[in-house]
Simulated scan of single mutants.
Amino acid sequence: MAIDPAVIGTRTPAFQTLAERGRLRFFAQATGQEEAVYTDLEAAKAAGHRDLPIPPTFLFCMEMDNPERSGFLAGLGIDIRTILHGGQEFTFHAQAYAGDTLTFQTEVRDVYSKKGGALEFIVRDTHVTRDGEAIATLTGTIVVRDPKAAK
């Protein structure tokens, strides 16, 4: 199934989620963040932060809070059993903190295929903002494998 290039430029509905301090601490510990600024409020303030800073890749976890996250692929008729995570990039514009309510909106940047259509790629940019201020752009690539393609 070829992904229609007309999907380029489409956007998913925006959603908001709160960066909770306890969840940030758990993530920092689970990912081996040893800097106290990620787990100790006083250490964060002593380092010049207004609260616990959000560790760089935590925004990807927050993106998973989207209540409609499977709707995009389903709308394209893609069986999630045929997808792979093809890559992730982060571009940071400003620091986000515990207590921030962040808005996420995803836009399709590109679609293309390789191996004669056996693999199709969807490149999406998720724009993260706080009260209209750009926080980060998360670029994710989804690989869709054609189950009918020769192995």
Results as ranks from 00 to 15, higher is better:
residue 127 H to D: 04
residue 103 T to Q: 11
residue 11 R to H: 03
residue 53 P to H: 09
residue 12 T to I: 07
residue 20 E to W: 10
residue 2 A to R: 15
residue 99 G to V: 01
residue 25 R to M: 12
residue 72 F to Y: 14
residue 127 H to G: 03
residue 23 R to M: 06
residue 104 F to L: 01
residue 22 G to P: 12
residue 38 Y to V: 08
residue 37 V to F: 08
residue 103 T to G: 00
residue 52 L to W: 03
residue 146 D to L: 05
residue 125 D to R: 11
residue 38 Y to S: 04
residue 21 R to Q: 06
residue 34 E to Q: 11
residue 121 F to K: 02
residue 52 L to T: 09
residue 77 G to P: 14
residue 67 P to H: 02
residue 142 I to H: 03
residue 71 G to Q: 13
residue 123 V to L: 08
residue 4 D to G: 15
residue 1 M to T: 12
residue 80 I to E: 07
residue 149 A to M: 07
residue 72 F to H: 14
residue 134 A to R: 15
residue 79 D to F: 10
residue 111 V to G: 08
residue 95 Q to T: 10
residue 131 D to T: 04
residue 89 E to A: 14
residue 19 A to V: 10
residue 151 K to G: 10
residue 1 M to G: 15
residue 106 T to F: 01
residue 39 T to A: 07
residue 10 T to Q: 15
residue 129 T to C: 05
residue 91 T to Q: 08
residue 95 Q to H: 09
residue 67 P to Q: 01
residue 64 M to P: 01
residue 108 V to Y: 10
residue 131 D to G: 02
residue 63 E to K: 04
residue 35 E to C: 13
residue 109 R to V: 14
residue 108 V to I: 15
residue 19 A to F: 02
residue 96 A to Y: 03
residue 42 E to S: 06
residue 41 L to R: 09
residue 45 K to P: 02
residue 76 L to A: 04
residue 59 L to K: 05
residue 149 A to F: 09
residue 104 F to I: 01
residue 148 K to M: 06
residue 132 G to C: 13
residue 33 Q to T: 03
residue 143 V to D: 01
residue 26 F to H: 07
residue 63 E to Q: 07
residue 149 A to G: 04
residue 70 S to Q: 15
residue 15 F to W: 07
residue 41 L to G: 06
residue 3 I to L: 12
residue 86 G to S: 10
residue 32 G to I: 09
residue 53 P to K: 14
residue 51 D to R: 10
residue 145 R to M: 06
residue 13 P to K: 09
residue 135 I to H: 00
residue 80 I to T: 14
residue 27 F to R: 11
residue 148 K to G: 06
residue 44 A to S: 02
residue 99 G to W: 00
residue 115 K to D: 01
residue 104 F to W: 07
residue 135 I to G: 00
residue 103 T to M: 00
residue 56 P to D: 12
residue 98 A to Y: 01
residue 104 F to V: 02
residue 118 A to W: 03
residue 128 V to P: 03
residue 96 A to M: 10
residue 105 Q to S: 02
residue 18 L to E: 06
residue 64 M to C: 08
residue 46 A to M: 06
residue 20 E to D: 11
residue 122 I to N: 02
residue 105 Q to V: 12
residue 15 F to E: 01
residue 95 Q to D: 06
residue 122 I to C: 03
residue 88 Q to G: 07
residue 125 D to W: 12
